[in-house]
Write a protein that binds this DNA or RNA. Structure first.
Lengths: 341, 341
DNA sequence: GTGAAAGCGCTAACAG
DNA sequence: CTGTTAGCGCTTTCAC
């Protein structure tokens, strides 16, 4: 494991010059630079990032905190962030909060407890004032994904808008009896996502003069299983079986499709289903959905952060950036069949 | 951002004592230790892991390389590793190879290029001689999950055995016409997993004197979609429709269940289906499967590594540890119905 | 354009 | 049990 000294000796220059040459600093003659590069290559020299970090105060390592790892959505955001960061020469250290309980505190103390990261990306996590304070007081830029965070750059999708779009698609097809499978309270912490989507849904109905029917709402846990159970309730109602279901996530929407099938109902003839996400399984199920592009979200978060880390390139923008979304119409939605109510 | 010096002054001791007290070293009087702890708390002092790493040569950070992030299986292994590492005070830096192409080389050069990690966990990755060499020559312990790696501690499941168990379950129920949906060549790199599972399947058949019928085999890509397509082929055969399908993964098995349903076949009455993994969706689909416990695998890998990092506690074991697996019988398998062949 | 030297913040002998 | 003193391996003024 040769050090910078060894390279310096081999190249016949000082360690200072080696450092300059290797980090692409301007004040080095081409000739010297070549010699240093050759020497470094010959010895297989690699800088010690610790030593370098200690000297510069920057680690080229950023922390990413996620609430779950095994859900497709979060894994995708993470994937987007990881590849972008690595392409820029940054490492990513991962903190997963899924364990619950003390995990969270331990993670945030970890962050503060070791200045190993230059910055933090928080995915779908509503940081507390204290957590944010801690990070910012150590001059660690923070970027949030999923909702607004006071005083921090964030990226988020307009959940109200997205839900409205999904519902409008159903309305435009002619549905008037539209059920909604929303998120339950456990997910409210996460920027009130269930409430926002429900607001969008209700708003769309009301703007068409359709009264909101509370019995057409069910809360679930964003899983296929949860969506399945909720849909069974909804579709089993003998009196007011809806002709369409808008689920707050694709996984729940897929659960709804499976529930319909199990009840002998045909999608979309008997019931239309629309979700949100564009989950990897959605195409397979022919699910109409509002796509949000999690990998892109991860990438954008990483880029936003890198921007902040390199003020010379800084492109100062608004504090909260709106994320793109798009209605993907597939085969799970159609006009309500005339044969039924 | 107070340094160790500030704490030393406040506590009225030397920096060496602060260091000792804070890292729980034995030679410190209780009284002094308390004073130091108090001072550190008062100042909100946190060690600089860089400085510490530089001085000790150890980073308390370990690198984890995964081939994919968005597949439930890998995410689960990662989750297991992350939580146990963090519980032991280690950070995890993540390297995802899903991008393909140059990613892999860049990652391994990264590892060698910065001594930021103390060790590496490679998940379902058959490292090349060069990659291994590089790591080991820098004295970085490596633990592999998923298959044997020369000269390195590894954890792996006995794929032949697992496949045999799944197939035997079907045989014991009385099936004789058992199809197999295996993995395609893209997954061979990964410790020949498809081949091994196929060997187990064929071995089980042969030991019962049932000839292997090549037309009852289909290769797919481990996804629901792939399993669906393969199963359609298998079940659509007018002459030799199998009474059971053994899929090399739960996702493919779920695809098979959905295919059967779409063809109007009933599971398990018309066709039994068994998979491998115990995927998070398997219970929902009532899928009989051979569970392998990915989170546990991650945890065990982390523990094995920590063992190697702390030789004082070292429990030297075999180079390759067998991972547990277990048949979970649910409702997708039953005796072949007497009404059919 | 290049070298000398002073740290970055901590830990680990070595004394005492 | 505690303090002194070297570094760990690099970067960065400041001179030349």
């Amino acid at each position: 494991m040769p050090g910078i000294q060894a390279v310096a000796e081999l190249a016949g220059v000082s360690t200072a010059t080696v450092s300059r040459a290797l980090s692409g600093k301007p004040n080095v003659s081409q000739k010297t630079r070549d010699a240093v590069l050759a020497a470094a290559a010959e010895l297989g020299y690699v800088v010690s990032s610790n030593a370098s970090s200690l000297a510069t105060g920057r680690t080229r390592n950023i922390g990413v905190v996620v609430p779950f790892l095994t859900r497709w959505f979060y894994a995708s955001v993470l994937e987007g962030a990881e590849s972008t960061l690595r392409n820029h020469g940054y490492d990513l250290t991962l903190y997963n909060l899924a364990g619950g309980g003390d995990e969270r505190r331990s993670v945030f103390e970890h962050f503060l407890l070791n200045k190993r990261v230059d910055a933090v990306i928080a995915i779908s996590l509503e940081l507390t004032g204290g957590e944010l304070q801690g990070l910012l007081s150590m001059h660690k830029p923070v970027v949030g994904v999923g909702g607004p965070l006071p005083g921090v750059h964030t990226l988020s999708i307009d959940d109200v808008e997205v839900a409205q779009l999904a519902t409008e698609h159903l309305l435009q097809l002619g549905h008037t009896s539209i059920a909604h499978i929303g998120g339950n309270d456990d997910f409210e912490r996460d920027f009130h996502l269930p409430t926002n989507r429900r607001i969008g849904y209700e708003g769309a109905l009301e703007s068409r003069g359709i009264p909101v029917n509370p019995s057409l709402f069910r809360a679930a846990d964003f899983t296929i299983e949860g969506g399945y159970a909720a849909a069974k309730q909804l579709l089993g109602s003998p009196r007011e079986r809806p002709t369409a279901i808008f689920a707050a996530s694709d996984e729940m929407a897929i659960g709804a499709i499976l529930a319909a099938r199990d009840m002998g109902l045909h999608v979309p003839d008997d019931v239309s289903v629309v979700g949100i996400d564009d989950h990897e399984l959605s195409e397979f199920f022919g699910l109409t959905t509002v796509a949000q592009f999690p990998q892109l979200q991860g990438r954008m978060a990483a880029e936003l952060l890198l921007d902040q880390l390199h003020p010379e390139t800084r492109t100062q923008g608004a504090l909260n950036t709106a994320l793109p979304f798009e209605l993907m119409v597939r085969s799970s939605t159609a006009r309500p069949s005339s044969g039924r109510g």
